[in-house]
Design a protein around this nucleic acid. Structure first.
Lengths: 214, 214
DNA sequence: TCATGTGAATACTTTCACAGCA
DNA sequence: TGCTGTGAAAGTATTCACATGA
């Protein structure tokens, strides 16, 4: 099996999209799925789909496309790596709840192991059926469960405190959904994501399009 | 003023991070801010900060750094372009509410003009103090308000219907937060974003780091 | 002929090296 | 000396061109 490490990052982000369509096809009882069809469904170029699939060792057959069953299997195995699959969620608001309910997590091979919040007022609260744990429990749980990833979906006024609460844990990287408030410590990998950035990306895409003027 | 079109996309996504720190400094009464300090706060390299700022025409001064007042002004003007600043939000769940409340929108120069949902059951509902409008009103409002961007933060079972509801509107691109369910029509730019993809990116970052093994 | 697979070419980003200025 | 500014270089990602196989 191909090691996920070594697969280009943009490719890695597209694989779950392919997987979803392969599984849709599998349920429909189809045997083959071509890069052209995939590309059309996803708004990509077929050459890119082929490069991506070829980079993870998925093998297609000329004239027919890629075998649905085998390719779905390959992608599924690749995305469901076992380390890094559990994440801690820090936060208990709308954003945290939306994260908890999101289907894309399992498709990318992740699951939420526990939910934390630093506010004393949150003691005993529940989020989506889970207990919200005090932040103080995070380091110990992280070590015992081997969880190395955390997601910050927390009010900005609590962000700094939550960051400190990672001290002594195994957390090696965080996804920052707070909107860039967080100062990134040197020993922590930080991926920032925000709705605003998504929109900026979209505007960038549009301005590159030949059609309608900006 | 530098045209946002022509500024590299990754740069465009980092600018709001700089702007936030410049404004923080301005409130603190500081006059100068160096690329090194910016970089340290954000987990970037100083050279990248300088390249970014230079690409939008921000001018620094040797030994001191970048002038806080002037640079904040430049960034602010650049990000607050006037077309593409209003967006329609489609959806009314936790994710939609989180989107509505997100601070990163204004920092990137966007604002939510109206909220829509295709479900008849949602008639008259409110989301974050706004009325949730029936999807049928979207095309007309889009034309009258000149809104060309939409954000899909909607349950997957409604996504397809919502997409059809864009027919006859001015919408030229959408941000798809549904997790990749949407089939992308050829005439629409689609930016997909999902929590799962963010986590994949983080794992990719970590695996590139020299330190701790994966 | 249709669709894959691959090495080359192109485009885009980041990083380096060093010049210049206070 | 400290930090900016810029052109060159390196590193990535995407796209092209064409060989191959059913």
């Amino acid at each position: 099996m191909v090691d996920p490490v070594g697969v280009a990052l943009p490719t890695l982000r597209r694989l779950p999209l392919y997987l979803r369509l392969f599984e849709e096809r599998r349920r429909a009882g189809e045997e083959w799925l071509s890069s052209e069809v995939l590309a059309r469904r996803l708004g990509l170029r077929s050459i890119q789909v082929r490069k991506d699939l070829s980079s993870v060792g998925a093998l297609g057959s000329p004239k027919r496309g890629f075998p649905v069953q085998a390719t779905a299997e390959t992608l599924s195995l690749l995305l469901r790596r076992d380390s890094y699959s559990s994440v801690f969620l820090v936060g208990a608001g709308h954003l945290a709840l939306a994260f908890l309910e999101d289907e894309s997590l399992s498709r990318h091979g992740f699951e939420v192991a526990a939910v934390f919040h630093p506010a004393p007022a949150m003691r005993g609260a529940r989020l989506g059926g889970r207990e919200v744990l005090p932040l103080a429990k995070l380091p110990d749980l992280s070590r015992r469960m081997g969880v190395r990833l955390a997601v910050f979906a927390i009010e900005t006024e609590w962000a700094a405190e939550a960051l400190e609460g990672l001290g002594g844990s195994e957390i090696g990287g965080i996804v920052d959904l707070t909107g860039g408030e967080l100062a990134a410590p040197r020993d922590l990998a930080v991926v920032r994501a925000s709705f605003g950035a998504c929109l900026s990306t979209l505007v960038g895409e549009l301005s590159k399009r030949p059609g309608r003027a900006v």
